[in-house]
Nucleic acid binder design. Sequence first.
DNA 1: GAATTAATGTCGATT
DNA 2: AATCGACGTTAATTC
Lengths: 266, 266
Amino acid sequence: MTVADRATVVLEKPSALKAAEALKIGLSRRRVAIIVGDCEVEYRGRASSRLESGERVVLIKDDGALLIHRPSGTEPVNWQSPGCTFKTSLSPDEKLIFEASHGAPPETVAISFNTVRLLAVLGLVDKGAFTLYTSEEDMRKAVFLEPSLVEEGFHPITYEKVVPTGFVDCIGKDRDGNFVVVEFKRERASRKAAEQLARYVETLRKGNPKVRGILVAPSLVSDARALLANLHLGFRRVTPKMCAEVLKAKGGLKRGRIIDYGEEKP
Amino acid sequence: MTVADRATVVLEKPSALKAAEALKIGLSRRRVAIIVGDCEVEYRGRASSRLESGERVVLIKDDGALLIHRPSGTEPVNWQSPGCTFKTSLSPDEKLIFEASHGAPPETVAISFNTVRLLAVLGLVDKGAFTLYTSEEDMRKAVFLEPSLVEEGFHPITYEKVVPTGFVDCIGKDRDGNFVVVEFKRERASRKAAEQLARYVETLRKGNPKVRGILVAPSLVSDARALLANLHLGFRRVTPKMCAEVLKAKGGLKRGRIIDYGEEKP
DNA sequence: GAATTAATGTCGATT
DNA sequence: AATCGACGTTAATTC
């Protein structure tokens, strides 16, 4: 991408004609465009919809995706998946018309702008890698696949067992055959986490005084460290990264949990 | 919302300080903000993620929602649901830092901007109603609930039956006990749709010459009308709206198929 | 408020 | 290409 291609076009309250021109040029160069303005939207495809006039943010991406966002809410009110063909035009009454069409299945989103408050056309470069680290759920999976993450010789028996005081993340046995209660925390564990583990261990020690407890987390706050020491409970440092690596190596990672985009899509 | 509140702030390549000031004022007034720039993103919550530096579009909505979009793809790479608390600040090395936090469950998205190419703060007003009309699937449901949509005395027997030449949307019997093949089209039906129906009817007439065919759609192109007439096939006008009303009345409409937002959320 | 279910789901992997 | 399954799913509805 040349310097010229990265040039930004920003138009405040452009005429429909100016906006149409800037859009046509920008989209032919596969830039990203943002349009803010009062508009009406029609969608026809798997379903059909109509959105009456109001002010929205329209985002057109360089892969031919389209998103129309209202001023509130997480989800787009209308959208079009990547690979659209765009058509920019002026209506008989001089309004900016923007259409995004898809071949298969045939779908079209048509936007008619009553006013354009802002139009920006930008060439964006994004080659940054995205990594989604493991969740608490994945920590459990990693420990199932590689029990030594908790302790050498550990082997898990049950997960998420219900005890009178709540849920126990994992119960297993150590190399000597003693029961071990394991509590996972994906982030630095607080005193509360240590208390939770203590409660579970206490409950289970009523039936068997040899029950041990281990808190598994990337790190501990000092309060938690003190409490664990007092109650003769263990701690094992396990980071999300370590879990991710285990899951990757042992194939327990089903899909999408670790995502790595090193390159832009072609 | 007063005229002053609707004033647009658009800054190209602002300094981090200028951007921070504009954002603070804008977000305190619950405006919508768009930031385009090179940034890094960290998320911590149910899972955690890290996004290395690259250029993205950040959209902050007036209900406290946050979306971070890469230049391609339909879905945001990171996001935060409505109701966030925002924090704008400058890092020791003068970078714009933007954090969006949620109480329950505790989640945070932190964005560090290396550069800001564009910042827009706008008060948007959107009271337009959104209506999602029925899909082809819902047309079948509507006909199941109200067979007279196809013809007085019609009663459906099977849906999506496999015949040698493809799928038949619906097969039923008319008031005289003759078989009727029904083809649905959610939009103005093309000649192709009529040919499809003709093919199905032809197949079935080999076993029973009295088989009839009816194309159900909101309207017909003239080619299709001619073809249907030639082959003695029927047409019945049924609009998505009619189906939606049947589904609504008869309770076949599960949820969200007709959505009507008449007002902005409080 | 928790649990359930649909979605123009989207996205990635597998057959 | 079609199908399957997970998702920081989200969002609407029912219990």
